[in-house]
Design a binder for these strands. Structure first.
Length: 591
RNA sequence: GGCUUCGUAGUUCAAUGGAUCAGAAUAUCAGAUUUCGGCUCUGAUGAUAGGGGUUCGAAUCCCUUCGAGGUCACCA
C-alpha cells in the first residue's frame, strides 16, 4: 500500500472516531502539498463540510490533531483555508527506501482476473506504413504494457485489412506496369513495391478521367467509366467469387507486404499475440447481419441492401450490406468483433484507431449492442489525434506522405551523428554502436509521440525530439546511463539498513516522487493514457539531476550515508528503466 | 450546413472542480558550478480566444460569439 492510501485510511478512521460518520476511502481528496506551503500531503476538507456539518477549517484542525496523536506517520500539521497540510516523518521515507530499493516487483500489481484485448496497428496491405501511423503502434504497444502492469491479462492483436477495392487497385496496376517485377528482382522492400503500384494506379486513373472529360464526358461519369477502375472492380468481384488466378496474385502481393511489415515491426520492437485478417471475418459479418434481419433489428430496402436505423439514438441510417450482397467496411468489423470475443471472452476490448473514425466506432458499438453481441459493452475506442510536422500536416490521400521507414532511418541517422560528434563511445563494438543508435533514435521518436495526451492533435519536431535537453526520451535515457555510471564505480553496495542517517529535503523530494510510481501506472491504465508515464519519468529524471548537484554519492560524508544514497540510485534507476520499458523505450547502461 | 473534438507563455506540451503564484520544456536575459558523464543547477521575462452563468472555489461544468480540426459514401 502506498503512502497516500495509507493516509486516506488514517483520515477515514479519524473521521469515524471523532464524528461517527463513514466516508468511503476513494471520496477523500489527498494531494501533494504545493511547495509554497509546509507539509508533504494535503487533505482537502471542503467536501467533508456538508457531511459533518462543521466549517472546513474546524474539521481540518480536529482531524490534524487526532492524526498526530494516534499514529506515528506524522510530525506536524497546519491548516490554511480548509486545506490540512500534513508533514510526514523522515523515517517513513527511509523505511520505504530500505524495503523497496531491491524489490524488482515495485511498480507491478497482482493479477486482477480481468482480460483486456488491445487492437492496434491494423494496416492496409496496399501500401507501406506511414509516419502518422507510428503514433497508433506506439500507443497500442505501450498501453498493452501498462494494462499488464496493473494486473490485467492482455492480448495484443493486429487486424490486417487485407481485402477490398484498394488492394485490387495495386494488383491491377502491378499487372499493367510491373513487367513481373518482384521485391527480389528490384531490391525494393515488399510493402514499398506494392505501394508504388497503388500510387501508379491513381496516376493512371486520373489520366484516364482527364482523357474521358476531354472527349466530352461529364466528370462523375468519367470517374465510374475509366477502364482501369472498371478493371479493379472486376477484380474485386473475381476475388469474392474465389477466382484462382486472382487469389494467387492477391496472396503473392500480400506476402510481399507482410515481409516488409515484419521488417518494420521488428525494427520498432512492436509485437502482437494474435493476428486477424479481414478476409477471414467478412463472411462471418454477413452471417451475423442475416441473423439481425431475422431478429428484426435490421431492415432490407427494395434494392436488397441492408440497413440499421439509428435515428432514435440521434444518428443516421447506416448501410451494412450492399444491394449486390457484398460487404462494406462495417460488415467486416461486426464479424471481427464477434470472432475476437468468441476467441478470448475479454472484459474490455480496446480499439486504437484515429479520431477520424469516432463516428464509425460509435456506430459500430451501438450496432453490436442492438444485435446483442456479447462483448459489445466492453468496447473502448482509444481515439487519437493526427500527427503533423512543423512545416505542415500530412494526409494520406494527398500523396506527400512521410513514410514510416524513412522517418525511422532519419531518427537513427541523427542519433548516430550526434553520438559521433560527442565521441563518448570508446570501447563500443560496431554492433553495440548500432544498437545504441537504434535505442536513442527510436527512444526519441517513441517518447515524443507518446508524451502528448492521445486524444489531442500534436506536432512532431524531429530535431527537438532527439535533443538531450528538455522533455525528451534521450534526456531520460541519459539520466539512466548517468546513474549506471555511478553504480559501476561503486562496487560495494551494502544492504545494511540506514537507521542512523537523516535525509535532506532534496533526498526526500526524490523519494516522495519515486514512492508515487505505482500511482502513475494506475492513472495511466485508468485513463488509457501512456503520456502520464512520460510526464512522470521525466520528472524523476529531472529530480535526480537536481539531487545530484548538491549530494555527492560516491564521496558521501559517511559510509552509512553513501549506502543510503546508493540505494536511492538503484531504486531511481530501476524506476526509470521500468517506466521506459512500459513506453517501449530501451534504457541504455552507457551512451 | 448537421453532429463532434479542440482553443493555455513567442513555440511545443501539463494541470482527478482546489490554495496567495495555472506548471514544465524550448527560446531570450542574468548568475552559480565546470569534480559522478556530453554538462548540471538557480533566478528573471512571458499564457487560460471574447462574453455571460453555476459554486465556498472554474483552464476544467453550462450557455453564447469567434477561430481551428474531424465526420456526415453501396470508400476503408
Amino acid at each position: 500500500m502506498n503512502l497516500a492510501e495509507e493516509i486516506k485510511k488514517e483520515v477515514s478512521q479519524a473521521i469515524e472516531a471523532i464524528y461517527k460518520k463513514t466516508v468511503p476511502i476513494d471520496e477523500l481528496l489527498i494531494t501533494e502539498t504545493k511547495p509554497e506551503f509546509e507539509g508533504d500531503y494535503t487533505l482537502v476538507t471542503f467536501s467533508l463540510a456538508k457531511l459533518i456539518g462543521k466549517k472546513p477549517d474546524e474539521i481540518a484542525e480536529e482531524l490534524g490533531a487526532s492524526l498526530l496523536d494516534n499514529n506515528d506517520l506524522f510530525t506536524a500539521f497546519n491548516v490554511i483555508k480548509g486545506f490540512l497540510n500534513l508533514s510526514i516523518k523522515d523515517q517513513v521515507f527511509l523505511n520505504f527506501l530500505n524495503t523497496t530499493w531491491n524489490d524488482a516487483d515495485f511498480g507491478t500489481f497482482p493479477a486482477n482476473q480481468k482480460k483486456v484485448m488491445v487492437e492496434y496497428s491494423s494496416p492496409n496491405t496496399n501500401k507501406p506504413i506511414h509516419f502518422g501511423h507510428l503514433r497508433n503502434n506506439f500507443l497500442g504497444y505501450s498501453l498493452a504494457n501498462i494494462l499488464e502492469a496493473t494486473g490485467n491479462e492482455v492480448v495484443k492483436t493486429n487486424l490486417i485489412n487485407d481485402r477490398g477495392i484498394h488492394i485490387c487497385k495495386s494488383m491491377v496496376a502491378w499487372l499493367h506496369f510491373a513487367n513481373g517485377d518482384t521485391p527480389e528482382s528490384t531490391g525494393i522492400k515488399g510493402d514499398h513495391l506494392v505501394g508504388d503500384y497503388y500510387v501508379k494506379f491513381n496516376d493512371e486513373y486520373k489520366a484516364q478521367i482527364e482523357t474521358l472529360i476531354s472527349e466530352g464526358m461529364p466528370k462523375e461519369e468519367a470517374e465510374k467509366k475509366a477502364p482501369i477502375y472498371i478493371e479493379a472492380q472486376d477484380m474485386l468481384r473475381k476475388w469474392e467469387a474465389g477466382d484462382e488466378e486472382t487469389l494467387s496474385l492477391w496472396k503473392k502481393m500480400n506476402d510481399w507486404v507482410y515481409e516488409g511489415f515484419d521488417i518494420t515491426y521488428t525494427r520498432l520492437g512492436i509485437t502482437f499475440d494474435r493476428l486477424y485478417y479481414e478476409s477471414n471475418t467478412y463472411l462471418l459479418g454477413k452471417k451475423i447481419i442475416e441473423q439481425g434481419l431475422e431478429k428484426g433489428v435490421l431492415f432490407k430496402k427494395e434494392d436488397g441492401s441492408v440497413w440499421i436505423d439509428l435515428t432514435a439514438d440521434g444518428l443516421d441510417q447506416k448501410l451494412l450490406l450492399r444491394g449486390d450482397g457484398t460487404s462494406v467496411y462495417i460488415t467486416q468489423d461486426i464479424g471481427t468483433a464477434n470472432l475476437k470475443f468468441a476467441n478470448y471472452k475479454m472484459d474490455t476490448s480496446v480499439y486504437v484507431i484515429g479520431d477520424e473514425q469516432n463516428y464509425h466506432m460509435q456506430v459500430l458499438k451501438l450496432i453490436l449492442q442492438k444485435l446483442e453481441e456479447p462483448g459489445a459493452d466492453g468496447i473502448y475506442h482509444l481515439s487519437y489525434g493526427m500527427v503533423e510536422l512543423p512545416n505542415g500536416k500530412m494526409k494520406s490521400r494527398e500523396g506527400n506522405v512521410v513514410d514510416a521507414d524513412d522517418m525511422i532511418a532519419e531518427m537513427i541517422g541523427i542519433a548516430k551523428k550526434n553520438t559521433e560528434e560527442l565521441g563518448k563511445v570508446d570501447g563500443f563494438t560496431e554492433a553495440e554502436l548500432q544498437t545504441l543508435y537504434d535505442t536513442l533514435g527510436l527512444g526519441a521518436l517513441k517518447f515524443y509521440l507518446l508524451r502528448v495526451d492521445p486524444k489531442k492533435r500534436m506536432i512532431f519536431n524531429p530535431e527537438e525530439s532527439i535533443d538531450f535537453h528538455g522533455f525528451t526520451g534521450p534526456f531520460v535515457q541519459y539520466t539512466h546511463a548517468r546513474i549506471s555510471s555511478i553504480l559501476r564505480k561503486a562496487d560495494d553496495i551494502k544492504i545494511g539498513n540506514s537507521k542512523d542517517v537523516s535525509i535532506t529535503p532534496g533526498e526526500k523530494k526524490l523519494l516522495k516522487l519515486i514512492e508515487h510510481y505505482p500511482d502513475a501506472i494506475l492513472q495511466a491504465g485508468r485513463e488509457y493514457n501512456p503520456s502520464v508515464i512520460c510526464n512522470y519519468v521525466y520528472h524523476v529524471a529531472k529530480e535526480f539531476n537536481s539531487f545530484l548537484v548538491d549530494h555527492s554519492v560516491l564521496k558521501a560524508e559517511t559510509e552509512s550515508l553513501k549506502n543510503m544514497r546508493l540505494k536511492l540510485c538503484v531504486l531511481t534507476k530501476q524506476v526509470i528503466a521500468d517506466a521506459l520499458n512500459l513506453l517501449g523505450v530501451q534504457a541504455p547502461e552507457r551512451m
